[in-house]
């Protein structure tokens, strides 16, 4: 219950939305899927802004990849057939890992990307894919890479009146394969550990490796030392295991109600190794 919300706007264009955001400042709350907003009781909020009617709700093929509109629902991403094979289904799997069906039916790609929680699954995939976020605001349009977008909390990356309008995905040139893994207690649970990897090249010689980890700290992060360990090298069992060990060493985490710190660290290593093995198996 937002006790002081008085009005709700339904902008039809991004420009209209940006104008209202600019005028209302911190009194405004953006509603996309609304799954987070509905649980808020923030007394500052007076103006609601339902952005689900300003378009940008489809998924289109573009170049070596796709553009996913900010208003696409996570369930659409999870079940969109071309995405289920794109990069071995990495993105579709991450979207399908979120909560349960009714949550995926409500939550949008844009809302989920910005309103990121420690356990959010899709941002891990965006990071592994090095997705580009299409942002529009009072000062015009810009694109930001996932690396930059998740370097700090995305809401800080956005100026108050900016909107994410879409996510651009592009597969690496040449042979590549991805994989996503979520570890949780039950099928409908928040992640204990998320791992997304994207490998290019061949098993004999890895050209590029991107390894993204979620649920261990506030924001998803990339295991760059592990990536470097694989770059230009054969994807042998030892190499993958060592990359997993390096990832574990670089993991900062803490205990929570789901698991202890030690166990989560151990799981990071196991899950990274297994996810790398799955992706590597897809390469020639």
């Amino acid at each position: 219950m937002l006790p002081n919300a008085k009005t709700c706007h339904y902008p039809r264009t991004p420009a209209e939305a940006i104008r209202i955001l600019k005028d209302s400042g911190p009194r405004a709350l953006i509603l996309a899927g609304g799954t987070t907003a509905a649980l808020s009781s923030d007394p500052k909020v007076e103006v609601l802004l339902d952005i689900t009617r300003l378009g940008h709700d489809g998924i289109q093929a573009a170049g070596r990849g796709f553009r996913i509109g900010c208003n696409a629902r996570l369930q659409e991403v999870a079940s969109f057939a071309p995405l289920r094979s794109f990069c071995t289904g990495l993105v579709a799997q991450a979207a399908g890992a979120v909560g349960s069906r009714p949550i995926r039916n409500a939550a949008t790609v844009g809302g989920n990307a910005v309103q990121v929680f420690r356990w959010s699954d899709p941002p891990v995939a965006w990071l592994a894919m090095n997705a580009r976020f299409e942002i529009e605001g009072p000062a015009g349009a810009r694109t930001v890479s996932a690396d930059e977008f998740y370097a700090r909390h995305p809401r800080q990356a956005l100026d108050g009146a900016e909107l994410v309008l879409g996510v651009h995905l592009e597969s690496p040139e040449g042979p590549h394969a991805g994989a996503f893994s979520k570890l949780a207690r039950t099928a409908f649970d928040l992640a204990m550990v998320d791992v997304a990897v994207l490998l290019s090249g061949s098993r004999k010689s890895c050209q590029e490796a991107r390894i993204a980890i979620g649920a261990t700290r506030t924001l998803p992060w990339r295991a760059t030392r592990a990536e470097e360990r694989l770059r230009g090298k054969p994807l042998s069992a030892e190499a993958l295991a060592e990359a997993a060990r390096l990832t574990r060493e670089d993991t900062q985490t803490a205990a929570d109600a789901r698991t202890s710190k030690e166990h989560r660290l151990h799981m990071v290593e196991v899950m990274v190794r297994r996810t790398l093995e799955r992706a590597a198996a897809e390469l020639r």
Partner: peptide, 16 residues
């Protein structure tokens, strides 16, 4: 109690 919600206290769902 640290896990006083269905979010933290998990019970099985159809997929389990």
């Amino acid at each position: 109690m640290r896990n006083d919600s269905f979010r933290e206290y998990k019970i099985f769902c159809t997929r389990d």
